[in-house]
Design a protein around this nucleic acid. Structure first.
Length: 161
DNA sequence: GCCAACGTTGGC
DNA sequence: GCCAACGTTGGC
């Protein structure tokens, strides 16, 4: 099992919305590096759900990958802002995964709090100017954040140790 | 293949 | 709303 961080703007789609829906395709990623990380995801991987462009920004909860990468349908939808006319249906350029909510944090673990965690000092997330919307995190980084949220493995329902 | 112009991200 | 940082585009 691997760990990731995925960004979303809460004004557009926040963790609470994921809780309401129960499951959601993680579409609209249009950056090659982020796409490649999506393609590395496996069912069961855990994702820190990060609220960007928010006041304050931070991690709102944990989601689980419930379907590995498959073609993002919005790339072929000419009415979508994520439409990509250069994408070949025979070899789709963009991918998405499905995620489901696992646990909502009692309180946001803010970016400011993340910056104080030693394991997060050299992350693309905390580095100035980084815009990567899907990134791998180490298990140390993941459990640091869980700890900062006041949670532990037992709170991650059904996740094997 | 270079690089200037442009659009977007995202913290503040 | 500002603007720094970054990725992409397209002329040459």
């Amino acid at each position: 099992m691997r760990f990731w961080l995925i960004k979303s703007e809460p004004d557009v789609f926040g963790f609470a919305e994921l809780m309401r829906r129960g499951r959601e395709p993680w579409n609209g990623v249009r950056n090659y590096q982020a796409r490649n990380f999506l393609r590395d995801m496996r069912e069961g991987d855990l994702c820190l759900f990060y609220h960007s462009n928010a006041r304050p920004p931070g991690v709102a909860g944990v989601a689980r990958v419930c379907r590995a990468a498959y073609p993002d349908d919005l790339q072929f939808d000419s009415g979508s802002s994520y439409f990509d006319p250069k994408s070949d249906p025979a070899q789709p350029r963009w991918s998405m995964v499905d995620v489901e909510p696992l646990v909502a944090f009692p309180a946001l673990v803010t970016l400011e709090a993340l910056r104080r965690l030693p394991d997060w000092a050299d992350s693309p997330l905390t580095r100035k100017g980084s815009r990567l919307s899907v990134l791998p995190v180490t298990s140390e980084q993941f459990w640091d954040v869980l700890d900062a949220a006041g949670l532990s493995l037992e709170d991650l329902n059904g996740v094997p140790a």
